[in-house]
Design a protein around this nucleic acid. Structure first.
Lengths: 138, 138
DNA sequence: CCTTGAACCTATAGTTACTTCAGGTCTTAG
DNA sequence: CTAAGACCTGAAGTAACTATAGGTTCAAGG
């Protein structure tokens, strides 16, 4: 059966570590599970789904606070699609901003690299670039 | 004159906070500066240049350990341009990888959003997507 | 029943690159 | 001389985990 499982199996089936599962419990993202007489955690399919949700949201770059608020909405039953969409839109904006910053980095790094003869001299255009304030007219 | 300054001016001229300057000193990126009789830090132009280097490298996404190794090379005088170029290339690869991951996020987020009618129903395609394992044929 | 080894437990510290805080000291202009 | 503002130290907090130490439980085999 796939109904009841320990933390190890849960972790394997969601591709995360047992430490991460315990961490999510600690932070409140995951509920306190049942325990065996000896204190081992016991999980069911609902936990599997919830953890799957968390992992996929994390992969999409949602922060734990954002995930927490999505989960709270779902837990309270008062789930409005519009609200979820607004959070997603905001997150998409963040992601796009991060892409823009990284692209600027990429451009600068590759432009600098292309100027480099990679010799053994001390005259390095990369170092020069890092030592030179941009613009110069501030 | 611009020759001697306190930590506040140094921070202002490198667009970072005084706390960050002290932090860099703590971690060894910045050297221990001279002090006034009362214990206040005193900086010169060399510090200004070094901190400028650090900040620009950070803006390009270099980690503090990478910056540390660039600075050590420079400090020891044995600066080989080829080595700097290799570090930069490696870093550029990291940056490109991060861009690729974020672009995939962006694509998924915007595709999901476009399916959303943003109504007040409980039937939300975003939530559905997050609850559904990808592929399905794992 | 007993042993053994894997899986599990808790609690704490470490990671990155800082920021924030508490509670005091120094400097300088008036 | 005083008061504001810049500065000082050391410790704790942030995000999202990871790692470590040292002990307990579980399940299978003998």
């Amino acid at each position: 059966m796939t109904a009841k499982m320990g933390i190890g199996e849960l972790a394997r089936r969601t591709a995360c570590t047992v430490e991460t599962v315990r961490y999510y419990e600690h932070t409140g993202l995951m509920p306190n599970p049942q325990r065996t007489a000896g204190g081992h955690r016991v999980y069911g399919l609902d936990h599997l789904k919830r953890l799957g949700f968390i992992r996929r949201a994390r992969e999409l770059g949602f922060g734990m606070d954002q995930i927490q608020s999505l989960l709270s909405m779902m837990d309270s039953g008062g789930l409005s699609c519009g609200e979820v969409a607004r959070k997603t839109e905001q997150h998409l904006k963040d992601v796009r901003h991060r892409i823009a910053v990284l692209k600027k980095m990429e451009w600068t790094l590759s432009a600098t690299l292309s100027q480099c003869h990679q010799g053994e001299t001390a005259d390095c255009p990369i170092i020069d670039a890092l030592f030179t304030p941009d613009g110069g007219d501030d």
